[in-house]
Nucleic acid binder design. Structure first.
Length: 447
RNA sequence: UCCUCGAUAGCUCAAUUGGCAGAGCGGGCGGCUGUUAACCGCUAGGUUCCAGGUUCGAGUCCUGGUCGAGGAGCCA
């Protein structure tokens, strides 16, 4: 029996007889000729059956194969520019075909556009379609690239708890669940505070897992359950943090470009700007960003847009601001030094400017906006204690966190990168829900 | 929580001023040796989101509700 191959490797088998194990994605019959578009999990390839090449009964069966039937196909590979697929340009001349199961004829996903609600109700089938398959292939490569870079740069992977005692930052709304006799537990919105403990044992660490936010956000950039990687490093200030971030993001983007060419091409992604992603990234201060936004607002004629872009010093950027700002850049851009009042309690103040903190967001270009939020953390025991009081946080719950500033405190910094937002940017898609296999939004927990 | 929009065949949508509920795709049957969302012929397929109301007559107008989408705020 010829070797079972992966469609992603099909170019290596031109002129050879191979076996494909997969599913019929589409069928077009032309009388004495049938085209099957077969997917095997690794790609999509056209298989061509001629009536004269096959037994009469088999050809008749092939001509009637319902969409999504599972099949084992043997035939010879040839290059043909007409052949569609991912990667396209190669096809299999069918010599034998075994039907593992003829699918039921009421498969609901037509090979056409679908409404969002219908598509999401059938997410378990939607992921079979080329666009969704390609996005999720990019996602897995992005996740691998994240781990590769961190693992090879001295970061120790340390899992942090999903069930947590309280808000880490005391701001966002959390999912809660009863926890035996201990009252309520909350689903983690960040592993950062635990990371900060872990660096004093391991130097540089990262956690990587699902993150939960119960906020009633209804936008293309929000999920209630999403994946975030959070690196944290001891003996690291804000400038060193930005160097880490730009190396890290560059590795992720370049790996995806290198390993997902066929997927990105099938998605129609223009990769010219992604190819330019390399250190150094532009760095602008909050004050400079504010000036740019005022200029952009002055040039805007649309009154609605003018209203949305209104801002004054001390306010955090909303998504209209981020979008407008990043449309001016072709590379990811750092915005550092946000007002202390809009950021979390644990951020180190700017030397000589207490109204500003050593925070930095990384905004993806082409209007995609924030993919990373990070900062240098407060290292002084007294200042941290003062901030806990200022934010009305229960000091006793943060006793262990205060200990970190008591026993060998050092300057340290960290950040969180949102996987889904990063994949949205790299794949060029508009809605974050397509970058995760089973999205959880305010209105959806099925399937 | 607020603003805006939407719901008609399995899917995507159309239906003029309130006047017989339609098309394409998908399914079935038939035809075709290079299709790219193939094409051609035939065919089956409807609680027009729900509950009221106006009217000779409502998919269409009015009231209330349900569900969904986009955006704001918040954030990754």
């Amino acid at each position: 029996m010829p070797p079972v191959i992966r469609i992603s490797d099909i170019a290596q088998y031109v002129g050879q007889e191979v076996t494909l194990q997969g599913w019929v994605y589409n069928r077009t019959d032309k009388g004495k000729l049938v085209f099957l578009l077969v997917r095997d999990g690794y790609g999509f390839a056209q298989c061509v059956a001629f009536k004269g090449d096959l037994p009469v009964e088999l050809f008749d069966q092939v001509m009637r194969l319902p969409q999504e039937s599972s099949v084992i196909i043997t035939g010879s590979v040839r290059a043909d520019q007409r052949a569609p697929g991912i990667p396209g340009g190669y096809e299999v001349g069918v010599k034998d075909l075994q039907v593992v199961q003829a699918a039921a004829e009421d498969y609901p996903m037509a090979l056409k556009e679908h409404g969002v609600d219908f598509a999401l109700d059938h997410r378990h089938l939607w992921i079979r379609m080329p666009s969704q398959w390609a996005i999720l292939r990019v996602r897995t490569v992005v996740i691998r690239a994240i781990r590769e870079w961190l693992d090879s740069h001295g970061f120790t992977h340390m899992d942090t708890p999903i069930l947590t005692p309280a808000a880490c930052e005391g701001t966002t709304t959390l999912f809660e669940t009863p926890y035996f006799d201990e009252g309520m537990a909350y689903l983690a919105q960040s592993g950062q505070l635990y990371n900060e403990a872990n660096i004093f044992a391991f130097g540089k660490v990262y956690c990587f897992g699902p993150t939960f936010r119960a906020e009633k956000s209804k936008t293309r950039r929000h999920l209630t359950e999403f994946w975030m990687v959070e690196p944290e490093a001891a003996f690291c200030d804000l400038d060193q943090l930005m160097e880490i971030e730009e190396q890290f993001v560059t590795h992720i983007v370049q790996t995806a470009l290198r390993e997902c060419q066929a997927e990105l091409k099938s998605l129609g992604r223009d990769t010219s700007l992604l190819e330019q992603v390399a250190p150094p990234f532009p760095r602008i201060s909050y004050d400079e960003a504010l000036k740019m936004l005022e200029d952009i607002r002055a040039e805007t004629e649309d009154p609605e847009q003018k209203e949305l872009l209104a801002i004054e010093w001390g306010m955090d950027f909303g998504s209209p601001h981020e979008t407008a700002l990043t449309q001016r850049f072709s590379k990811p851009v750092f915005v550092y030094g946000y007002p202390t009042q809009v950021k979390a309690f644990y951020m180190e103040p700017w030397p000589g400017r207490p109204e500003v903190c050593k925070s930095v967001d990384l905004l993806a270009p082409e209007g995609y906006g924030e993919i990373i939020g990070g900062s240098e953390r407060i290292s002084s025991y007294e200042l941290l204690l003062q901030r806990l009081h200022e934010h009305d946080l229960p000091v006793e719950a943060f006793q262990w966190y205060l200990d970190l500033r008591k026993y060998g405190s050092v300057p340290h910094s960290g950040f969180g990168l949102g996987v889904e937002r990063t994949v949205s940017w790299i794949t060029g898609i508009q809605h974050i829900r397509e970058t995760i296999a089973y999205p959880r939004t305010i209105k959806r927990v099925y399937p």
